[in-house]
Amino acid sequence: MNATAGMILALAVGTYAFRLVGPALHGRVELPARVRELLSAGAVVLLTALLATGALTEGGGFAGWARAAGVLVGGVLAWRRAPFAVVVLGAAGTAAVLRLAGVT
């Protein structure tokens, strides 16, 4: 087995093990209501952190104005309760148009 295959295998096994923790415990261990509440709050905390870092950063630095402005437009549309498609396409379209206009 070469090194690339080994890397892929290790990453696959480890990732699946992470993913399986919750589903495997479910039904065997009765989690207290407080813990379940914290778990679903924790998922939203993780998603919020992902969207913030995804909107603003790339490789440890600033991701550029085009992406940030695109996500901001998406956020405003979402706040105004625009349909999902409008939010996503509005964000991508804004970033694409800004890049076309030379904004990075």
């Binding site: 992902l50 996500v71 991508a92 970033a95």
Partner: peptide
Amino acid sequence: GLDAAFPAVLV
């Protein structure tokens, strides 16, 4: 603009 689409999905 796909890089802006994924954060927007989460938003």
